[in-house]
Design a protein around this nucleic acid. Structure first.
Lengths: 211, 211
DNA sequence: AAATATAATTAACACCGTTAATTAAAAAAA
DNA sequence: TTTTTTTAATTAACGGTGTTAATTATATTT
């Protein structure tokens, strides 16, 4: 019965080819513009065949969303070698921001769009979530910062949540165009100066004040 | 030639009826599910007639987006009577969060979706932006906080930006379902306890540390 | 009353996600 | 090996979408 395993492998192969095609189109033209029909055409399949491998479009979105979390998690790996909690926190923020800027489409899928999250809540079982690893790392780092004298008297989970929200907020406003809009309208910021980085530098100073 | 003015009035009337129908449907079923055809049916017009009054769908989104900023701006009005800068900052955050939670669809249109902002950047002229009033109020409040001894040595514009990003980040993560997901997965938070409010309370404590 | 300008309509294009019915291919049973 | 059964992939179709071009109805002006 070695046949069945090989079939399973072939099925997994098609699943992957669909996903690769979806990713390619998605990174090139964005999620909305990537239709099931285009994905199918890309790998010379009939559109309806896609539905034999994925429940619907948001299922594909969710699978890509998971992949994004895996990539972010890998980039977080280097943080394990940073001893100081506060230094790790800063590095974490920088990695997160870089990831968001360099993988804008993945970031949209992971944190801004609602489709993948809706797919999650539609699922009966709450399986292992890759995003949880990243947040767990942040939690631990905030805890280490507390040991170094930061965030005294503050609930560490809420601090972690706030820091995530802040960095996500910066990225999200940047990706949606609000940051540049406000910068050119309210702040007379030179075009060449990166407003996101400047804000992050101030954030570091702010956190430093919480020792 | 008082005729022409009356015509102008009638044109403005239809424009408004379209917008009201769009808003009603949008608040009930969300932006994506609100089609031009449904808007037209709502006020017994042909779908194509809409295009005589609005350039395209994102034009309608942008007009609604502007209205959202007007409502938020009105809710900010009460802040003028708060003398203390820091108290005003706290109240501002609470108003912003309440607005986001109670007008989730408007909030999506104003800060999360990309269509309205794309419409802005497609426009040749950069006319008065209602959102600027709200951010201006925040800028002034941060300045007042500085006068009260907060945020010493920090660039006030960047501080304002970071605070906005933080509160927006919380709201955005909440609306997208990430906040509740993390809360139930990582933080063992009782269902009845409002995680957003709890995070905000910690934020206030954090800001208080920056005196 | 006829000619012109404008407002609204119908018809049409090129898509979309998704489901049901059908055909082609492979595996199992005879 | 041939027939039956299972499974994989396809075509056809439904009911939508935003948007444009061509056309008709309605006022306004000559």
């Amino acid at each position: 019965m070695g046949r069945k395993e090989k079939d399973q492998q072939q099925i997994e192969d098609v699943r992957l080819r669909i996903l690769e095609a979806a990713k390619k189109l998605f990174l090139k033209e964005g999620y909305e513009a990537t239709s099931i029909r285009k994905i199918a055409a890309e790998i010379k399949l009939s559109p309806t065949t896609i539905y034999l491998y994925y429940k619907d479009k948001s299922d594909i979105a969710y699978t890509l969303h998971k992949e994004g979390f895996k990539v972010l998690g890998e980039q977080f790996m280097v943080l394990q070698h940073v001893e100081s909690g506060f230094e790790r926190l800063k590095a974490m923020g920088r990695i997160y921001i870089n990831f968001a800027i360099q993988n804008t489409d993945f970031y949209q899928l992971m944190f801004i769009m609602k489709e993948p999250m809706e797919f999650i809540s539609d699922k009966d079982c709450c399986e292992w979530e890759e995003g949880e690893f990243a947040f767990g790392a942040l939690q631990q780092t905030v805890l280490d910062c507390k040991a170094e004298g930061y965030f005294n008297g503050l609930n560490e989970n809420n601090v972690a949540l706030n820091i995530w929200a802040l960095v996500h907020g910066l990225c999200s406003l940047k990706l949606q165009g609000h940051l540049d809009h406000v910068a050119s309208a309210h702040l007379h910021v030179p075009e060449d100066r990166n407003i996101l980085e400047e804000a992050f530098e101030t954030l570091v100073l702010m956190l430093d004040k919480m020792k």
